[in-house]
Design a protein around this nucleic acid. Structure first.
Length: 574
DNA sequence: CTAGGGTTAG
């Protein structure tokens, strides 16, 4: 109460002479609102002042107050204030929508939009940019489409801001076809519209399309801004396109883009995921500000490369792992999520402690631990050739998630390991019956800033004959140096390609042969594979690293393999 | 009585 009085007095004593031209028309209370900023305590004081001084029916004051309260994070306060505003107008709704959608109160934004329509206040182009953003954050495609039709009816179909928001909406709801359609219909395209579409392709797992689009943008005469660069860096991360990533880094430097957390973290991710950890460390060191995401990117970057963390499972670090896990709950009060449980199972599994892994799962079982945990357990069984437990787990996983083709592959793989070819056949038939398809494996390699994609047995490349001939030659020399092809039974590898094709034409081998043919001696070969690497390729590439005297880096779905002088940084443990 | 917008990291 004292504080309120004090504030009231301060307002009363404000001298008119101190006001400049700009603020002359504004009331002292409005000034007080601006001064409080998005701080709840201050806003409560001004709110009290508004009430005691009889200004509680001033729409403009309440509008500003609600916006600030919402910015301060109290949607509850905002919800309760709203009904006190007499005759809410379009400007009030627009302010509300802006602030709710901007600060992630998406459902409230949608509800206020509904309210606006009922109240008869006409929506503006500002209304739509906000409510469309709310839909985008909710990935609410149906609702978004409904609002898209309102946009057309209200005549805002050609507003550039609304169009950009619509592109982002469709992109976030994974409807890239419609996103592209909206984009194509724009008479003139702002950098934001381009960015929305570029990031959309990247976010929907179409990194090459996003880069192609970027080249079109350059051709149209527009220069990338930091947002463009950040999206493209993610595309590079997905593709393992190090050269293009470096080019983007240079571009940012040359154009003086500020190395903020977002750009810096994107660069770190790009460098680690494209195989250059020391460059990532350089970026990390030069950043002025870092947050959790930055640190996580750097730490998991080191982890992926195994230079640091692959030793964990081999040494006494399992106890450390246990300690860290329990300290999560007991010291930090955090509830372990699925990813943490997966980590633990993975750690035990890698170390061959299948029983500990299984016991761990049993302990967290009261609830179903989720397919990801079981998949990790299954991988451990496969790695350590534990047939009995493997089958048990695989059947369980299949029951939990019957629509995931990876589980069938895993189960059939485990049967194959045990030589139960009858069962393998059975599982395969089950897959066909349920119309499930395995994920298609592919590998990419970047040469002269261009990415080349190979799938298994791929013959689409112009150099196909040379590549196959050279690969055959390499495999011959591998055999001479002691390489033994993996037995056929292993060819049902996790999510791997069909065994019917000869092992030697797996996509990573094709990419490798192509890379060796098209780069100079001494250059490191970098390959990216979308699935896990198969055991046969792993063993072959170790031999090839000696035969061709090259350093070869393969990034698979989960980690990096640095092949050098006949061994791999993962220590055959992945 | 004023006022404001769309895109970017995991």
């Amino acid at each position: 109460m004292n504080k309120i009085k004090l504030q009231t007095q301060q307002l009363a004593f404000q001298h008119p002479v101190t006001r400049n031209f700009d603020t002359q028309s504004r009331s002292p209370v409005y000034e007080a609102l601006l001064r409080s900023g998005p701080r709840l305590r201050n806003l409560q004081q001004v709110h009290a002042h508004i009430i005691v001084s009889g200004l509680h029916r001033s729409r403009s004051l309440l509008t500003k107050l609600i916006s600030l309260v919402c910015t301060a994070g109290s949607i509850t306060y905002a919800r309760r204030l709203f009904p006190t505003v007499p005759n809410p107008d379009s400007f009030l709704f627009d302010s509300l929508l802006k602030v709710t959608s901007k600060f992630g109160f998406s459902i409230d934004a949608v509800l206020f939009y509904r309210h606006m329509l009922f109240s008869g206040a006409p929506p503006s182009n500002y209304t739509f940019t906000s409510v469309i953003k709310a839909c985008a954050d909710l990935s609410a495609l149906r609702l978004g489409k409904e609002i898209h039709s309102h946009v057309m009816v209200c005549g805002y179909g050609s507003d550039m801001y609304v169009q950009a928001a619509l592109i982002a909406l469709y992109a976030k709801a994974s409807d890239m076809k419609v996103a592209k359609k909206v984009f194509d219909a724009m008479p003139q395209r702002t950098i934001i519209a381009w960015n929305s579409l570029i990031s959309g392709f990247e976010q929907n797992g179409l990194p090459q399309e996003s880069i192609d689009l970027f080249h079109l943008m350059m051709k149209s005469g527009l220069q990338p801004d930091p947002a463009t660069i950040v999206s493209l860096l993610s595309s590079c991360s997905q593709l393992g396109a190090l050269d293009f990533g470096c080019w983007l880094h240079d571009y940012s430097n040359v154009n003086g883009f500020d190395l903020n957390v977002v750009l810096g973290t994107s660069l770190i991710n790009m460098y680690t995921r494209c195989g250059n950890v020391s460059k990532a460390q350089e970026v990390f060191d030069s950043m002025k500000e870092r947050n959790v995401v930055t640190w996580t990117a750097m730490i998991s970057g080191y982890g992926m490369h195994g230079h640091v963390l692959s030793a964990c499972a081999h040494s006494g670090l399992i106890d450390d792992g246990r300690r860290v896990f329990s300290s999560m709950k007991e010291v930090y009060g955090l509830v372990p999520g699925v990813e943490h449980n997966v980590c633990m199972v993975d750690m035990f599994g890698r170390a061959g402690l299948l029983n500990d892994a299984y016991q761990f799962i049993k302990k967290i079982l009261p609830k179903e631990p989720g397919p990801a945990v079981w998949t990790s357990m299954l991988g451990a069984c496969r790695m350590h050739r534990n047939f009995d437990l493997g089958v048990k787990v695989a059947e369980h996983v299949l029951a939990v998630e019957p629509e995931n083709p990876g589980h069938y592959v895993m189960l059939s793989n485990i049967y194959a390991l045990a030589g139960r070819m009858d069962r393998v056949e059975m599982v395969r038939n089950m897959m066909t019956r349920r119309r499930l398809k395995k994920q298609v494996g592919y590998s990419t390699i970047e040469i002269n800033r261009k990415t080349y994609l190979f799938s298994m047995g791929d013959k689409s490349h112009p150099q196909t004959n040379t590549i196959y001939r050279y690969l055959d030659e390499l495999m011959c020399r591998c055999s001479e140096s002691g390489y033994v092809p993996a037995p056929e039974s292993l060819m049902h590898d996790l999510e791997e390609e069909e065994r019917d094709y000869a092992l030697r034409y797996h996509s990573e081998k094709l990419a490798l042969a192509f890379g060796l043919l098209n780069t100079n001696q001494g250059e490191t070969i970098r390959i990216v594979k979308n699935l896990r690497m198969c055991e046969d390729c792993h063993s072959a590439i170790k031999h090839i690293s000696i035969i061709a005297d090259r350093e070869i880096i393969v990034r698979d779905k989960f980690r990096f393999h640095h092949f050098k002088d006949g061994s791999c940084s993962c220590l055959d443990y992945w």
